[in-house]
Every structure is written in structure tokens, then in C-alpha cells.
Amino acid sequence: MKKLQGLLATLLLAVTVPAAALNVFACEPEWAALARELGGDKVEVFAATTAFQDPHRIEARPSLIAKLRRADLLVCSGAELEIGWLPMLLRQAGNGTVQPGRPGHFEAAQHIERLEIPTELDRSMGDVHASGNPHVHLDPRRLATIAQALSAKLRDIDPGHADDYAARQAAFAQRWQQALAGWEQKAQPLRGVRLVAHHKDWVYLADWLGFEVVATLEPKPGLPASAGHLAALKAQLQQQPARMVIRTAYQDGQAAQWLSAQSGIPAVELPYTVGGSERAADLFALFDDTLDRLLAALR
């Protein structure tokens, strides 16, 4: 009898334990967070990079190849952000489902209108992206569109759980719209504010909030700040002042601090992505924290 009970329990367990979750390989923490919002317990999400790493400059490490080998879905920014490492991972991993053009390949930037698409390409302009600025997640309106597309993708490749994904997307969209209204209300004072950024990663945030990035600490995209460029920037700010200088958690703070000390404007470190600050633990908190830090610097 006891044996039978044990057998029954095992059978029950086999039935109730869900099938292996969908393996999601997210290139950046923001897409890992979004996949978790939309997939819940139906997905097993791996983030290939952290908020303290520059997504332009990642080593095609063995551990990443091993993870991509088993992925059912790849979620990346696209627009050439990962061009220095992702193609190598894709060629090494021997995984058919996540290759470009296959169902398991999702590039967020393909689903929204991109900004700063260059009309001319020349490396003397720095590391510019032919497909436009790839830092698309910092506009929550665009992120809502991407969420919709990603949810459709999840339903597509895991039809068994389509209803779950649809319900999660509906709930997420509703919460997101509410939060968006609150953020817009709160961020009114940022409209028209002039600021200096380390790299051109804030175009989409600026597009949403209406602030103006008047200069970058990098003389050209991808090149570290040089003493000459910083001195010129200081002179420029004396003529046309800015309110603050912003950077991400993965960018070195020295240049921003120097300019801050010289020009008397605050240097602000923003989380940039999920995990970039203690508070920015998910996408909602990312925007909460970003706005609070920007507004605090205005005071």
C-alpha cells in the first residue's frame, strides 16, 4: 500500500510539474527583465551582460556560447549594438533556432522607429551604428511596443502557453500605461533642460522627456574622453550652460566628475538599465529611479 502511494505521488508529480521552461538568452538586463515580466514561470531567463558592462564591448566568452547553445529564444537590442560579440556567439553555438531570420531570434530595435540613423557612414565619426541609435529601451513608449512584439513572439514559439503569455502581456501593458502617465506628470520640469552625457545612450530618454543633450564627454562615439575635448567642453559650457552631466553605471566617472567640478553642475550616475542601481531592480523601478535622480539634480 505504501509502495502504491509512493508510485501515485511520483505519477502526480510527473503530471503537475510543468514541462521544461522556455530558455531565453537576453543580451542585456533590460530584455531579461522584460522577458521575466512577460514570461513569468514559463521562461528561464539568462542575462548575458550586467548593468556594469558596456554592451558594445563584451568578450565572446565560452560561458556565453554554452548558454546560447541551449537557448530557445534570443532577445537582444539589435541595430548593431552587439555586433562585436553576438555574431561570434551565434556562429560558435551551433544552435539553429536562434539564428537571424529564424523564429527564435528577436531584435527589439526592429520593432520601433529608431533615431539618429546616419545619412553618411565614416569611422572618423566614431563608432556609429548604420541602423541608428541602438539604446532603444530608455523610451517607455517604445518599450511598450517592444513588449507587445515580444509577447507575440513568446506565444508564437511556445503556443502551449499562449494564454498565459497573453494574460501577462495584458496585465503588464495596463500597469505600464499607469506608470507612464505618472512618470510623464512627474517629469514635466525636465522638458527643455540642457545636459551633457557621457555617451550617446540617452537619445530615446531625451526624445520622450524632451530634454536636450547638448554635448557628450566622448569626443566621438566609442572613444574615451580626452583632456583636450574636456577643456573645449568646459569653455562651451561657460558660453551655454547645462544643468547636469549624466552617465551610466558602466562608464568611468572621472571625466564627468572633472567637468562637474570645473563647471559647477552636478554629475549624475543613472542606472541606465535594470540592476544599474540598488533600486532599479525591475523595469518600473528603473524609470522611477532614473526620474528621481534627474529631478533631484535639477533642485
Binding site: 539589435g78 541595430a79 548593431e80 537571424p100 531584435e107 530595435a109 526592429q110 520593432h111 520601433i112 522607429e113 529608431r114 548604420a130 541602423s131 513608449r141 517604445r142 511598450a144 511596443t145 507587445q148 512584439a149 500605461q177 507612464l180 502617465a181 510623464e184
Partner: peptide, 17 residues
């Protein structure tokens, strides 16, 4: 905002890299 989102949704996926 709602309009902007609706507009983005209606448009097809933008061309790849």
C-alpha cells in the same frame, strides 16, 4: 502617448540592420 503607441503598433517592423 496612447496615439504614439498606436501609431508604432500599426506600422510594420522596421527594416533590419
Amino acid at each position: 502617448i496612447a496615439l504614439a503607441i498606436a501609431a508604432s503598433c500599426a506600422a510594420p517592423a522596421w527594416a533590419a540592420g
